[in-house]
């Protein structure tokens, strides 16, 4: 294992410390609970948005905390959901009296821990609600299973609901909007390599030099299919094919698009993939709204690979998607 770290057990706290030193104008860090909190929290009268999940997906979620997006992010250990205690502390730190809304990715761990946190918060008199994001079309949906994973599409929930909360929408309005975004967002990913969680010290899986995993998650969970690596355009065709044949009718609509790098894939390759994504969408009569998101938005440490996300937009979503915000994941320019 080769990493720029000091000690595997300290990666999360040292990373948060670095984020706080770099972005003190946007966020503050609550070190005892591994929380990233909006610098000016709590914002009185505003619904507060809290997300969180395992670490190792940076800039998700701490990078999305700030005016116009999240009020707090709870950082778990690498690839491990944070705990209800953390979530409760985050809830208390950001509650501005209008309730707290949790953006939860659909993993058993995340869901169970946020549920417990919600129970604890309600016991302390703070109103909470939540959405469980499950945008990953790689996994078949079924009520008899844990359902689909939440992956990169979650960023759109952060952005749109964050802007809506800033705009004064109340808790039930945020919930309705979040469910609507979730119902209209679909993602699918693939990977070329595994990654090494610092504490494990070894790759999560082995993969041959000419193989890829299709339908990859973001924690090194195996995908749904392993096969020989193919040209970028064919990979994109498969990911988009699965997204477009799912139960959201994208045809003729305006969409937000994300080509998300998993950490180890250079921008060159993401743009090569985006080039074909744009061609397929044009052929299908689907219009890309605004600026596409091409870059590393939700990563798996140093894993090579990418995902494609489409969000079918309505007028309200468009306004919130393009509203200004100020978060650490943005660039100084």
């Amino acid at each position: 294992m080769k990493k720029v770290i000091n000690a595997p057990e300290n990666v999360v706290s040292e990373m948060l410390s670095g984020m706080e030193k770099a972005h003190g104008d946007i966020i503050r860090v609550v070190a005892e609970h591994n929380l990233v909190v909006r610098a000016d929290a709590p914002v009185s009268g505003k619904v507060a948005l809290v997300s969180g999940g395992g670490s190792g997906h940076e800039p998700t979620h701490g990078g999305y905390v700030g005016a116009g997006m999240l009020d707090a992010a709870c950082a778990g250990s690498v690839f491990t959901s944070p705990t209800p205690d953390q979530m409760l502390e985050a809830t208390k730190a950001v509650d501005g009296g209008a309730g707290v809304f949790y953006v939860v990715k659909n993993y058993t761990g995340d869901v169970l821990n946020f549920e417990m946190a919600g129970e604890l918060a309600e016991a302390e008199g703070i109103q909470t609600d939540y959405v469980v994001v499950n945008d990953d079309v790689a996994v078949e949906d079924s009520t008899y299973t844990s359902g689909r994973r939440g992956i990169a599409g979650t960023i759109f929930v952060h952005k749109i609901c964050g802007a809506a909360a800033d705009d004064g929408k109340d808790l039930s309005g945020i919930k309705e909007l979040a469910e609507r975004v979730n119902a209209n967002v679909r993602t699918m990913g693939m990977s070329l390599t595994s990654c090494i969680p610092p504490e494990a010290g070894e790759p999560i899986f082995e993969i041959a030099d000419d193989e890829m995993e299709i339908g990859m998650g973001i924690h090194g969970e195996p995908g749904i299919e392993r096969k020989k690596i193919e040209p970028a355009n064919e990979i994109v065709d498969q990911l988009l094919g699965k997204i477009l044949s799912d139960n959201v009718d994208f045809s003729g609509s305006e969409v937000a698009v994300m080509v998300n790098g998993l950490g180890g894939t250079p921008p060159m390759e993401l743009y090569i993939a985006y080039s074909h994504v744009a061609d397929v969408l044009e052929r299908e009569g689907i219009t890309v709204y605004g600026r596409p998101y091409v870059g590393d938005y939700m990563t798996s440490l140093e894993m090579a690979g990418f995902s494609v996300t489409l969000l079918k937009l309505d007028e309200e979503m468009k306004g919130y998607l393009t509203a200004p915000c100020k978060v650490a994941a943005g660039r100084p320019f």
Partner: peptide
């Protein structure tokens, strides 16, 4: 302290 699915 555990998090994940197994913690709760």
């Amino acid at each position: 302290k555990v998090g994940g699915a197994s913690g709760p």
